[in-house]
Design a protein around this nucleic acid. Structure first.
Lengths: 245, 245
DNA sequence: CGATAAATTGAGCCCAATCAAGGCAAGTGG
DNA sequence: CCACTTGCCTTGATTGGGCTCAATTTATCG
């Protein structure tokens, strides 16, 4: 985790918005959109932009967190582990999601970069003070929590009741809709997760994931250029294989 | 779903708190705790107390919701269904939880009374107006959402990675800690869910649930008075069977 | 190119699902 | 009061989907 930019965060006199925020890809999508220019300046003064390599752990299960962050680029996986090493990914976060569990110091899960990512990190104290001053900020965080809750519950149905085939199809559908939101009937994308990660997300083994991908390919539901690149000729057909309506 | 009390909700001149709220078991635990007396009066003016019989559906998947509610007594199960009928319970709510998904009109899940329950229901419009006036209310709803998110993610680990034995033990542990919070090392309680519901919550079949309960009984982890009443002589041992630390 | 990790494929097994039968308690009607 | 039904739970026998273990193949990278 190396610091990429250390340029001054001071406000610019001829603009209300801090320079670092002006060029930020998460300027409107993250939590920043609700802040006034002066609040944004205050936040940006304490923020640091970081690049994190794929596979490196950002927060460990049970650790005390000192930061919140916006994801500027890439995919983060949130996972939980049993004492004997069995692991379950409980959520994926895509740019420009907000990362961090408000109002709790100790993290109940671990956060790891699935791909290379860029984040904009803020000290928890600054965020928590801003929350009390800007009701719009808490509202935004609330909505993000509700979105994650909806996603978690959707995934519980997948984990508890779907077959391996449906699970893999559901995962591909999830990625398709998140990576390539303006898809037509056909779409194409790179998987942000390894087979091992996909297995941990679906509650399966690597081998089963691999076999089901092969099966979907043989059934003509997907085409596989290499192990990461996937082409979906007909999203509706993929949805049917995923058990979605 | 019959209306139990229709008494006047008007404020009493010699008290700041509405009468119906004074005697309410959820007065402090639900969302009401953060409101000022006048806001509480406003809310209570539009609230209706209802009793709902076990098994009756309160909100259907895909329906438009018109109400929020506090659970005064009993257990509510939140579930999702696939088109072919496979079902997964994605959450349980106990008194004095708040029920309802803020900021969304269409429900993504169905809510059904697991036991007999009492609720205090409010029109969504009243709640949503109060949210804009009382930042403390949004904060309380936010915390409830975060709590539910934590619980959902815990359960994802159970659904995805635990064995049938561990799942059933995890369920018993969950109920033990929610029904009888001030337990010592031993505890005893009635299961609020039928075998079919437990199966839907654990992503198992009723037969497997039944077999695992029998197995836990034969292993001396629990004693079973009748199919509903369970005695746990040693919570720590149950936790170990549940794969918790 | 060789080295190492990631992914695929195969063979056999095991845990939980399925299919089927029976028990138990509460309710119903003759 | 007893036969019958109904709902819920348990138990047994069998099947099968996904796991385990092992061998190859394919990608990645110095």
């Amino acid at each position: 985790m190396q610091i990429v930019s250390e340029q001054s965060r001071k406000d610019i006199h001829n603009s209300d918005i801090p320079v670092v925020c002006l060029a930020c890809e998460a300027r409107h999508g993250g939590v920043c959109g609700t802040l006034t220019p002066s609040q944004l300046t205050e936040l940006s003064r304490h923020s640091t932009r970081r690049r994190v390599d794929p596979g490196s752990e950002m927060v460990g299960q049970g650790e005390t967190t000192s930061n919140y962050a916006n994801i500027i680029r890439g995919v983060v996986k949130l996972s939980k582990m049993l004492s004997d090493g069995r692991q379950q990914i409980v959520g994926l976060q895509f740019a420009p999601d907000f990362m961090g569990r408000p109002f709790t110091r100790e993290s109940a899960l671990s956060a790891e970069a699935a791909t290379g990512i860029d984040i904009c990190a803020f000290p928890r104290a600054v965020v928590e003070r801003l929350v009390t001053e800007a009701p719009g900020l808490e509202h935004r965080l609330h909505e993000q929590a509700l979105k994650e809750l909806d996603e978690a519950r959707d995934w519980m149905l997948t984990l508890g009741r779907k077959t391996a085939q449906e699970k893999v199809a559901s995962f591909l559908y999830l990625i398709a809709t998140h990576i390539d939101p303006e898809h037509g009937t056909a779409t194409e994308f790179d998987l942000p997760l390894s087979r091992a990660d996909i297995a941990d997300y679906l509650g399966l083994t690597i081998e089963t994931v691999s076999r089901q991908v092969t099966k979907l390919r043989k059934d003509g539901v997907i085409r596989v250029e290499n192990s990461r690149r996937v082409i979906v000729p007909d999203i509706g057909r993929l949805m049917r294989f995923a058990g979605i309506d």
